[in-house]
């Protein structure tokens, strides 16, 4: 699945060369931007030119607000695409690059083979391309661009604080843990398939499986979701956990947290609260599953840094079990209020 389109400007987003005369936004480009934005796809720019001038022109087209961290300069485009990938925390293999110049397309394909390159004449096909297909638009998808703009405000605000902790405390983060209900279904499916770094097994439960858990047909299973807000705005539902509890045994089958909240201890707070609940429910020992996906070593680190230790080898599907006593519960980062 692709998460971000990086556009060239001249003869791609618009017809004409900006520094040489009038330009006109190509209707198919506008259509793709508007439609995919509502599906939660982000847009950015890697183009040659003068940033100030180009942004002023973009403003007159009404498209400026769609573009996050535009890179309009004279740097090589692969370098600009890497900057976009870092700034938006979107991996290179989730990026699509659209340009009319065969040289630029070839250069990006050569230097960044993970990036999908698309010739500008094929712009319209992006609308129906399977890599942008979503089963159902979630509220998070429609607000995704807003979330990134809030994030920009957070990063700017951080400069005002003497250290990281003071900044985090000023954010007033509130993490709400609640049982999943039917309306969360699209978002939970999305979290399972879109999150990679903060995903303990990479297992995507089928919709029917989730529904049967919701309808209590899978004894002992329950799904908890986490919503996050801070003083800058709401992040929406940013995590999901699938837990199986049977008498005094407790097992975490999946923990998936959006990479949008990376770097502020949210996954730690989520897991710590789950363990706290397990202990209070009388389960002395917590088990947690982990399967290496090549991208989720952070979750292995999370387990071990929070006191889990591997118990036993991987099963046939590469799933390993970790365990930890539930008492004393691990500390929740002090800057996060869990409710």
């Amino acid at each position: 699945m692709k998460k971000c389109i990086v556009w060239d400007l001249d003869n791609t987003l618009w017809d004409g060369v900006h520094l040489e005369g009038d330009i006109k936004v190509r209707p198919e480009a506008r259509q793709v931007i508007e439609a995919l934005d509502s599906r939660g796809v982000l847009h950015s720019i890697a183009s040659r030119g003068e940033q100030e001038l180009a942004l002023a022109t973009l403003r007159t087209t009404g498209l400026l607000d769609y573009f996050l961290v535009p890179q309009i300069n004279w740097e090589p485009k692969p370098k600009n695409i890497i900057s976009i990938s870092k700034a938006l925390q979107v991996s290179l293999d989730s990026i699509v690059f659209v340009d009319d110049d065969p040289f630029e397309l070839a250069q990006v394909a050569y230097m960044l083979p993970e990036v999908m390159t698309v010739d500008a004449v094929l712009t319209r096909q992006l609308l129906v391309h399977p890599c942008f297909r979503v089963e159902q638009n979630t509220q998070e998808a429609q607000l995704r661009r807003r979330f990134y703009l809030d994030e920009q405000a957070r990063q700017d605000a951080q400069r005002e604080y003497p250290n990281r902790k003071a900044f985090l405390q000023s954010c007033a983060m509130r993490l709400t843990l609640r049982p999943m209900h039917k309306g969360d279904l699209p978002r939970v499916l999305e979290l399972m398939s879109r999150t990679h770094q903060l995903n303990t097994t990479g297992r995507v439960f089928a919709e029917e499986e989730l529904v049967s858990i919701l309808n209590d047909r899978r004894g002992g299973f329950c799904i908890k979701v986490a919503d996050l807000t801070d003083r800058f705005g709401g992040y929406g539902t940013i995590g999901a956990a699938i837990v199986e509890r049977c008498d005094s045994s407790w097992k975490l089958h999946l923990l998936a947290v959006s990479c949008r909240v990376l770097g502020r201890g949210v996954e730690r707070a989520f897991l710590a609260s789950l363990l706290d609940d397990a202990g209070k429910a009388g389960c002395a020992l917590a088990l947690a599953l982990f399967r290496e996906t090549g991208r989720n070593r952070a979750m292995l680190a999370l387990y071990q840094m929070m006191g889990f230790r591997k118990c036993g080898n991987c099963d046939g599907e590469g799933i390993a079990e970790f365990s930890r006593v539930t008492e004393p519960p691990p500390a929740i980062p002090r800057w996060i209020q869990v409710v």
Binding site: N163, R164, K165, F167, L168, Q197, L198, C259, L262, G263, R264, G265, E267, R268, R297, A298, M299, A301, L302, M305, A331, P333, R334, W335
Partner: peptide
């Protein structure tokens, strides 16, 4: 970790 400088992904 307690001072918010590192987290699980940062550690990696």
């Amino acid at each position: 970790f307690d001072s918010g400088i590192l987290d699980s992904a940062g550690l990696i």
